[in-house]
Design a protein around this nucleic acid. Structure first.
Lengths: 295, 295
DNA sequence: CACACTTACGATATTCGTAAGGATT
DNA sequence: AATCCTTACGAATATCGTAAGTGTG
């Protein structure tokens, strides 16, 4: 039994006329006649009773009509859904981004994506960098936006831009108006930072040690906003990823570029090697590159 | 998208090997390759990623795999069910028979049918003759066993045999041992019969009137068994369709053939004109004819 | 170098449409 | 006589298998 045969039969069953049905399925009357004859042969008995003047269904024909309608509808739906997926008129992308990116920059990218492909659902997981990597590795999401997790044989990282550490100062701080300052200068002041298990804290510390810099930590907390608020109220200074600049300023911090050294690490898109992206995800990758790529 | 294409794709998706899948669907490797290529073209994108050394599914391929499996299973089921219907390995016949026939003779016929076609469900409606006709007319059943309802342009009656009225006598009745007797003789005795709305009563009365015979009715009831019991206990005599002979004897009646005149009417199979019978019902018709036909 | 999929090509099968045939209203 | 389905037949299309090609481990 072929799809064409079933389609032909259903058309005849609906119209009870070979001629009319022929138009529906774009077939000449004889061709339709043959098609149905073959179907009947294959199934082993007559589906229609034709008396040259009137066509009607046999009991078996009615049985096939009932089941065939649902069947063909599902068939066409499946086919159409696939076509829509490929033509980006339907589908879903699941991605994850670390909070600093998800909150500030990502919305701009998603807006661009949705403008181009309004019918594709986007699922965003706003989780910490380590979990982003984990979710990509497990295949729960197709794309992750995070720091470079380092070489891996199952993960592929495409950098988008460098995220630098910037200084955060109280509004009334003497250096608050400057465009940039050195690390040594910053670390003269009481230092506020994130608590130990934090990825940012670990990264910053390892980098500072390499340059012989030692912060005078007077306070650590586990939320970046809290760090910002503390700096904003004048408790001390801090250093945070540039991605968080806006957030820091919103709670009263003044941001300055930090040099000597410039500490930065790449932020980019992580995905699985060896696994092809869905069409929708591939396009998302493209849009994200355009929105946040270097040039 | 054709059935063959989907079948081919699913085979590859399952085995992740074109060569192996080819064997499953009885296709050479190149033919399978072409088939899938065409499917991909039709759907608008790749379903499989092949690296000449390894085959894996794209996200879209996984989507089709999930839906396609169910779809093809339903497809095959539908096809097989129809084939089974035509080959009498599956199906259903709904029929109705008047109680006298349904209770005594029909079981023998059904046994013969079920022996030949053990997988076909049979639905028997044990209803009075008028309802049998009604159910056939409404198309709720395909076959009805009843008396001839007379000519009709939508019903077709095929007689099986003649059902005669026979006499029922108490066991100690002087005529109880005879093989046949005349109506006039029977009607000398107190007569027990069914109540008025009954078809049998009406038929019998109209026939008797035509022959100038008048029964001395001393009692009427609405159940044939009751008539039998009353005769059995010696209250009087009765006349019932021969179909009920066994039932009468079970409750103590003695049956004799009635002549002068022999009153009979055809019992047969009723079905709708212009509507083809299902294969299962056509076969049932055949079996019933063989079991209860004249010769 | 061996294996697995793809491309090329000739052969076969299937399907299609036009034309003719048959039956019913 | 008109209409509707079926059969017949030549043509176009699609599909298949064999053979050659290509890339990977």
């Amino acid at each position: 039994m072929t799809v064409k045969q079933l389609r032909a039969f259903l058309a005849v069953a609906r119209t009870l006329s070979f001629a009319e049905a022929g138009e529906l399925v774009h077939l000449s009357q004889p061709a339709l006649s043959l098609a149905i004859k073959k179907l009947e042969e294959q199934l082993g008995g007559p589906l229609l009773t034709r008396t040259t003047r009137t066509v009607s269904l046999t009991p078996e024909g009615r049985a096939l009509y009932a089941r065939g309608q649902r069947l063909l509808a599902e068939w066409d739906n499946t086919e159409e859904e696939l076509q829509q997926r490929f033509s980006l008129q339907r589908g879903k992308v699941a991605l994850a981004a670390m909070p600093s990116f998800a909150g500030i920059l990502l919305p701009r990218g998603l807006l661009a994506y949705r403008r181009r492909y309004p019918n594709i659902r986007v699922e965003v997981h706003d989780v910490i960098a380590e979990q982003v990597v984990e979710m990509v590795r497990e295949g729960r999401i197709e794309l992750g936006i995070t720091f470079d997790p380092g070489p891996s044989d199952e993960l592929l990282f495409e950098p988008l831009f460098e995220d630098e550490l910037i200084g955060v100062l109280p509004p009334d701080h003497p250096d608050a108006g400057r465009s940039e300052m050195g690390w040594e200068q910053l670390l003269q002041y009481d230092f506020i930072t994130l608590q130990r298990p934090s990825g940012v804290r670990l990264w910053m510390e390892s980098q500072l040690v390499q340059h012989g810099l030692v912060p005078r930590v007077i306070l650590d907390t586990h939320q970046l906003v809290t760090v910002g608020r503390m700096v904003g109220t004048g408790l001390g200074v801090a250093a945070v990823p540039a991605l968080c600049r806006q957030q820091m300023e919103e709670v009263g911090g003044r941001c300055v570029r930090l040099v000597d050294p410039v500490i930065s690490r790449p932020v980019g898109i992580l995905r699985r090697r060896r696994y092809r992206l869905s069409v929708a995800a591939a396009e998302m990758l493209q849009v994200l590159k355009e929105s946040f790529g270097r040039e």
